[in-house]
Structures are given as C-alpha cells and as structure tokens.
C-alpha cells in the first residue's frame, strides 16, 4: 500500500512513510470491511463517518511538517487511524470526537495497540482543546464551511493547520493555513478532496 499508493504518488517525507508502514490500518476498520483495509479509498466506520483514504492521511500528515517534539491537535478522531499515524512522528496527539461512541472505541483501540501518546476526548472539537493549547499543528479530518476561530487561536505562531473546506458529497478544497510569528494567517488551497462533513456545518 505504502509503495504503490503513497510513495508512488509523491509522498517523500520519510517519517510519514515509516508511520504509514507501521500503523496497521486493518485494525482500525470494522470487521465487515476489513478485507478492503488496504484499498486506496475511504471506508465506512459507522454513524455516517469514514476512515480516510490512506493517501490523503499521508498527504495531510506530510503537509503539517511534523517534528518529534510537536504537540498536535486533531478534530475528528473517527477510528483513530490518523491520530495513530501522527503519533509515530510527534510527541503528543490530542484528538476530539463528537460521537461519544466513536471516541470511546477509538480510545480503547489506541490504548490496546499501545499508542500511549494519543489522548482522546469525546466532545465538540470546534472549540479545540483549550487546556492543552497551543498546538504546533492542527489537523481537521472533516469538511467545514469555515475554519473554527478557536482553532486558529490555539495554533502556535509558526504552526500549520490543515482542513478540508466545502460541503458533503462534493469537491472540497484541502486548505493549508500557516500562522505567522506575528499571529497573522495565510491560507492556500492544496488539492480537491472529499470528506464527510464536520457536523454542525
């Protein structure tokens, strides 16, 4: 999967490639779709949510330019796969999931698999995780119609935020926001993608 779907499509960051190789995607998907775990596409995980396409997970992770000492925030834990991949590169991953059921199962799964530096909380990720802020990077794994202002606030100057912007069932733009040292922000569209919606938008 990593060689054909990810490396071949231009992902060069060695840490990302190693993380993608290390994390067993099949353990993050429901039993009934496990045979398709390494297909190049998103898969349903229940409650209308999906586990992202492996390439997109790698691509978004690479865009964040993560370092081993980074503390990052993820909005939308889902199955916990993206958090698990990021956790192989950074110091701490803080992730919030609006569906309590998914949050509990992801926390349990991550703990069982030994991803001790991933901290899962059930709740509304729109407000980030104020007590743990600021973050060196923020990753939003569901589409929204605007960037939640609390997330920009919780992003450390010099940090990066990646978010799919747009609506459900349509092309969304993966937008990268860079926060300057003076607190100003600069955004740019990267590629069109498709994510399930960030609930509430």
């Amino acid at each position: 999967m990593v060689r054909r779907q990810i490396e071949a499509r231009g992902i060069r960051d060695k840490a990302v490639l190693e993380a993608m190789q290390e994390v067993p995607r099949h353990l993050f998907v429901p039993e009934k779709v496990r045979s398709k775990s390494y297909d190049d596409r998103p898969l349903p995980i229940g409650l209308g949510q999906t586990i992202s396409q492996p390439y997109i997970v790698a691509f978004m992770t690479e865009l964040l330019q993560l370092e081993p000492d980074h503390r990052i925030f993820e909005l939308g834990t889902g199955s916990g796969y993206q958090a698990a991949v990021a956790s192989r590169i950074v110091k701490d991953v803080f992730t919030v999931e609006i569906y309590e059921e998914l949050a509990v199962s992801a926390a349990q799964r991550l703990a069982e698999l030994g991803y001790d530096n991933v901290h899962v909380k059930g709740g509304d990720g729109y407000y980030g995780w104020d007590e743990k802020a600021p973050f060196d990077a923020i990753i939003v794994t569901a589409a929204a119609d605007h960037i939640p202002p609390p997330l920009i606030k919780q992003l450390r100057p010099g940090g990066r935020l990646i978010i799919p912007l747009g609506g459900p069932f349509s092309v969304q733009q993966l937008v990268l926001v860079e926060k300057g040292t003076d607190g100003s922000t600069k955004e740019r569209s990267i590629i069109p993608v498709r994510f399930v919606p960030l609930l509430g938008h």
Partner: peptide, 14 residues
Amino acid sequence: PSIRSASGLSMRYR
C-alpha cells in the same frame, strides 16, 4: 448546540 455556520468567514475573525 453544535450547529455553526459562517460561510467564507474571514480567518482573521477571532
């Protein structure tokens, strides 16, 4: 409680 919409909201809005 989590319904929030603000299409095209400026990123400078805090």
